[in-house]
Design a protein around this nucleic acid. Structure first.
Lengths: 144, 144
DNA sequence: CTAAATATTGATAATGAGTATCAATATTAT
DNA sequence: ATAATATTGATACTCATTATCAATATTTAG
């Protein structure tokens, strides 16, 4: 369930951008924020349909874009070709450890790596914007 | 142009795997190895067509897969949704600095980061396999 | 060297993720 | 309550990639 703070933040964003409120948008927001896992657009679609049958695919994509633009969630282009979304309301930046057997995602941040990345940008004359780092391996469970 | 060593390595791989030699495969191999840039399948297709008109799309994709499996090239899933390929015959592992304005790719490796990545795998109980790291920013030229 | 066995090819249909279009509907401001 | 405007759902479309399959090429065995 959404907290009041989250709901308000979303509604404020809509108002601020001159966008309209809709139940569909709220349901999608809710699903994304509730999502513990890294869901594809299709998974989110099916999930939202449970609470709001009749919602269209296009609305899912449109709203996911909106949520990403707003900074409420981030998009992660995966190796299987689909995008996965994760809420960024509570979560700060992080990278991913991904199990190549079971697909499990582990969120990680290494401040030292972050610092060295900035150094790499600088050394090469780049103005840093963002990065993505994915570490693929086999998790403990899957090695047994 | 391909060196004898490269040609031989490719032919040896085919033989070893019980695959057949074909001019198409060799032309694609040649194009990929010659490619300095990070080409999409479509760019490789157009490139190969110059030397070998009549080649089909499917053959491009099939052969790129083969080359990746063989380790002669690597696939890079880009943000624009297409894959880009780069030869891995001479090139060792590296990550990418990508300019978000002009699209320029700079290949980078930071041994310290590599070491810290391994540490991250270990800390989380993962058996390391591979990783990808992309740093997005604005290059010197584009900042002017 | 030839023929049979088998892999590869090119054309094209199919898939799957994501986007564009547009008339119907809902929200907001007046 | 109404007019102005944004959003929606259905669906057609795009684009990258994969699957299918008959025709063709390569390899192997004789």
């Amino acid at each position: 369930m959404l907290t009041e703070k989250e709901k308000r933040a979303f509604q404020d964003y809509l108002t601020q951008e001159g966008l309209k409120f809709s139940l569909q948008r709220m349901k999608i927001f809710e699903t994304v924020l509730a999502g513990l896992k890294h869901l594809t657009a299709n998974e989110i679609y099916k999930n939202v349909q449970k609470k709001y049958p009749g919602i269209g695919y296009a609305t899912i994509y449109r709203t996911l874009r909106l949520l990403c633009d707003a900074g409420f969630c981030t998009e992660l282009k995966c190796e299987d070709g689909a995008c996965r979304y994760e809420q960024a309301f509570v979560n700060a930046h992080h990278d991913h450890l991904i199990c190549t057997k079971c697909g499990r995602f582990v969120e990680v941040v290494d401040p030292q790596i972050e610092r060295l990345q900035i150094r790499l940008f600088k050394i090469n004359g780049f103005l840093p914007q963002r990065h993505r780092m994915e570490l693929y391996g086999v998790c403990k469970q899957c090695r047994k």
